[in-house]
Amino acid sequence: MGTVRLMVLDVLKPHEPSILDLSKKIAGVPGVANVDITIMSVDRKVETAKITIEGTDFSYDKIQKIINDYGATVKSIDRVVTGKRTVIG
C-alpha cells in the first residue's frame, strides 16, 4: 500500500498567525518534509491560502488539528498524491 506523499489544501485563515509561522508548525508534523504556502486572496479579516505538503506518510488529522488550532479551516483537499515513490512534482 502506498503512502501519502503530497497533499494540497485550500485553507481559509485569519491574518495571524503569519504563513511563516503556520508553515513552521505544519513542518513540525512527523513525516512532513516540505511545506509550501501561497496566499491566493486577502480579505479584511481572513485570507485564502493554498497549502502544499510534501513528505512520507504524514497524518492529515495532525495537520488539520494544527490548522484548526490557529483559527483556520480546511475548505477542501484539492489534490492528494499517494504511492511508493514521488514521481509527480
Binding site: L12, K13, P14, V46, N68, D69, Y70, G71, A72, T73
Partner: peptide, 10 residues
C-alpha cells in the same frame, strides 16, 4: 469570518 468555532484553539 472563518466560519469556525475558536473555542479551545491556540
Amino acid at each position: 469570518a472563518t466560519l469556525t468555532k475558536l473555542k479551545a484553539t491556540q
